[in-house]
Design a protein around this nucleic acid. Structure first.
Length: 419
RNA sequence: GUGGGCGUAGCUCAGCUGGUAGAGCACUCGGUUGUGGUCCGAGAUGUCGCGGGUUCGAGCCCCGUCGCUCACCCCA
């Protein structure tokens, strides 16, 4: 039992699973790069007010899930609960929106929400996200969705689906809101739920309690209130998704947890994940830039949950058995402690010439050292003792096949590169 | 914040109606003075989460506490 334990609800990745985590994250990033997105690296904490204004005070994220503290100068600081608000702040602050549009950027890192932990829900979690700012064409909506879909397919995921809807423009939402509030007033709700409904009536669509969800099944949905323009745009999105071969399902009751979404919104859901099944989601945000003091530009983006996507890959058996890969090229085994110094120096020379190498440290029995060589995953091993040093040549053993080969010690690095 | 489940070896877990702790895997050494994976043999490893109570006796029963976990609310 160690004296210290990690803070409650954080995810940690250590070998060998950290290799799979890295693989998932790099695959997600790779697809953003392929589509012309560039890296933005941001602070993990921001002015608390940024999230209140950007994400919305009525959201659960802002009202009860933020890690907020006061710094030494008396400023209110919050660990970022999501990525988009910070990106917008930086884009505005650094005038990225004054150049060529769209601005296409990706980010990756840790995010924080003070929730009760659960399978797939952590207080510190990892996202890869993209934002495309400055164009409102439906082609960009589909480009963004396609990045995520392509990454999931590349990872080998099969048991997921894409839910999509449109929240329309301001006039669409205003018309719907009137009718929805009228409908909700006719329901008999408990106090907490009534308060939530008042802050944002759309939230009730997301309630999983059977009495609420069955009542809400008769509620008017926003999709039926779309303006002509919004409807046309949504039609284009759907038609392009079909051209791209991306399967989707229209879900008019889908609700996103953040207030800034407008127009196209979407969510990727995995079947094998239990309660926390959303592996990524996003949408368009028309008013966000201007609300944060920037130009009145539209944008669209997503956040993908790296932790959950890793869980999904594991649930589908993607990293089955021998997925643990090692990049080690050679593993050196000194025989006899008097030869350790020679081997240590040889190891250093190999590394200096760029060979990925390791050795057996300590005076171990040969059998044990060979076992370590085996477990290291190195491609080759070699034993170096008295006779090798005096003859200047050693026996290189290919671990997988057991085939051996004589090599001069002074040309070992060269030999390994030629193989 | 609310509810359920679980805390025993490094890991996964067994442990009967209470009688002072076990398996598999992993680890170390040996069988095979200098060549791993298979096989065989041997060895090391525990404040049974913590505190209290009942009892002749508690891993097991009772109370408390801490931690983990799953679910609700909500979300990546």
């Amino acid at each position: 039992m160690s004296k210290f334990a990690a803070p409650k609800g954080v995810s940690e990745y250590f070998p060998p699973r950290s290799q799979n985590f890295e693989f998932v994250r790099n695959t997600l990033i790779g697809e953003a790069v392929v589509s012309g997105y560039q890296l933005i690296e941001l602070p993990v904490f921001e002015d608390t007010e940024l999230f209140k204004r950007g994400v919305g005070e009525s959201t659960d994220v802002v009202s009860k899930e933020m890690y907020t503290f006061e710094d030494r100068g008396g400023r209110s600081i919050t660990l970022r609960p999501e990525g988009t608000a910070g990106v917008m702040r930086s884009v505005i602050e650094n005038n990225l929106d004054k150049g060529q549009l769209p601005v296409k950027i990706w980010y990756s890192g840790a995010f924080f929400r003070a929730e009760r932990p659960q399978a797939g829900r952590y207080r510190q979690f990892y996202q890869v996200g993209v934002e495309a700012i400055g164009l409102s064409e439906p082609e960009i909506d589909v480009e963004v969705i396609a990045i995520a879909d392509r990454a999931f397919k590349k990872l080998g995921l099969k048991k997921y689906r894409l839910d999509i809807t449109s929240l329309g423009d301001a006039s669409s939402r205003a018309a719907h809101r009137v009718d929805l509030i009228k409908f909700i007033e006719g329901l008999n709700l408990d106090d907490a739920t009534a308060v939530r409904a008042k802050l944002n009536p759309l939230r009730l669509f997301d309630d999983k309690r059977p009495e609420i969800s069955s009542a809400m099944s008769k509620a008017p949905v926003l999709l039926d209130y779309l303006s002509e323009e919004s409807r046309k745009s949504f039609e284009s999105v759907k038609s392009l998704l079909e051209d791209f071969g991306i399967a989707y399902q229209i879900n008019p009751r889908m609700v996103r947890g953040l207030d800034y979404y407008t127009g196209t919104t979407f969510e990727f859901v995995h079947e094998l994940l239990g309660a926390q099944s959303g592996i990524g989601g996003g949408g368009r945000y028309d008013g966000l830039m201007s609300q944060l003091g920037g130009a009145d530009l539209s944008g669209i983006g997503f956040g993908l949950g790296v932790d959950r996507i890793l869980l999904a890959c594991e649930a589908e058996g993607i990293f089955s058995s021998d997925a643990v890969t090692s990049s080690l090229e050679i593993y050196l085994i000194p025989l006899g402690s008097e030869n350790t110094k020679f081997v240590t120096n040889l190891l250093n020379q190999l590394r200096n010439s760029g060979v990925i190498a390791d050795m057996s440290y300590g005076d171990r029995a040969l059998k044990g050292a060979m076992k370590s060589a085996d477990k290291s995953g190195a491609k080759y091993s070699c034993v170096i003792g008295e006779s090798e040093i005096s003859s200047g040549s050693l026996t290189l053993k290919e671990m997988k096949s057991g085939v051996t080969k004589e090599v001069r010690i002074d040309s070992l690095a060269q030999a390994l590169k030629e193989i």
